[in-house]
Write a protein that binds this DNA or RNA. Structure first.
Lengths: 166, 166
DNA sequence: GTAGGCCTTGACGTCGGCGTCAAGGCCAGA
DNA sequence: TCTGGCCTTGACGCCGACGTCAAGGCCTAC
């Protein structure tokens, strides 16, 4: 099987496959014309890579799984190194979900306050009264400060909830 | 106040300020030497930008808030455009948190399976028996497929849970 | 013969938000 | 006067995972 066919079968591009090869993840044999040649085992390796990427794993993090498969194991996660990556990911996911949940709450609160303030202004326009209450973004933001937790390097390509500034 | 002082006061860098200016977010007056000059109002604008960035807003998304403040409103979110950004963000956050939660569950399940399989292998080593059960990553991954939902362009700098491939 | 389709390597482009030089100007204090 | 510190603009670097274009080779069908 040549590169185009493999890419089609797994639903990716030839460019991606060459990229993986350049990273040493998915080496290929060559035929007489210098064309890359792949077998069924490579389909499995590639599927493993793609599945993990869909979960948001970085390419480097898929390496243990790929090597595990290549060393003859029936599954990519049948090796300690792979399991370790799973564990790390879980931790990152939990941290990230926690941060996002905190941010969500904060933004939700700001939205509610802003809407209330605007409603108040509208009401004032109807029946003029006193001035409006402040509605600056709370300093809780600094406390909640959704900061790059524990080297959360793209948990799912979705990290980077802002790094420490200063 | 000059650029260095402003940066210090808000806890950012002169580079960032010049960048914001290049984006038209934080224009500055100049003194006789061509040096940038800022006032207290600029401190508030910059704080608004930084607070939102901490929440994971993209720079462009802070623009309505900044313009709102500059147009004389007491708060950056006292304008409809700002409120609209809040709403959009909430939706993106909810979607992202949902995706991450699904991924977390999936990865957690895989981890459990992998650990159980390895424990089984260890047990077999002790008391040899039958072969091991499969433990490939489930196809649920394709269903759950954490894919770029609704143009989730960096909800918090944390988007990109993988775009559609193909 | 030639058009089409697959393959090859090489290399620059993308996106965001700056970091990090480089080369130089202006001003204050010792 | 010289050193140090602040400022200026310009421009390349970074990161990840490729997209995309360029220039060319091989093979096949018509």
């Amino acid at each position: 099987m040549r590169i185009g066919e493999l890419a089609d079968r797994v639903g990716t591009t030839t460019r991606a496959l060459r990229y993986y090869e350049s990273r040493g993840l998915l080496p290929a044999r060559r035929d007489g014309n210098g064309h890359r040649t792949y077998g069924e085992a490579d389909v499995r390796l590639l599927e493993q890579i793609r599945t993990l990427q869909d979960f948001g794993f970085e390419l480097e993090e898929t390496r243990p799984f790929v090597e595990c498969l290549r060393s003859g194991h029936p599954a990519g996660d049948a090796c300690p190194a792979s399991v370790a990556v799973y564990r790390r990911k879980l931790g990152e996911l939990d941290a990230l979900i926690g941060e996002l949940t905190a941010v969500r709450a904060e933004v939700g609160a700001q939205l509610a306050r802003a809407e209330q303030a605007m409603a108040g202004l509208a009401a004032d326009a109807q029946a003029p009264g006193g001035p409006e209450p402040r509605c600056e973004l709370s300093d809780a933001a600094d406390a909640t400060d959704v900061t790059d937790v524990a080297g959360l390097t793209d948990v799912a390509g979705l990290t980077d909830v802002r790094g420490v500034r200063g």
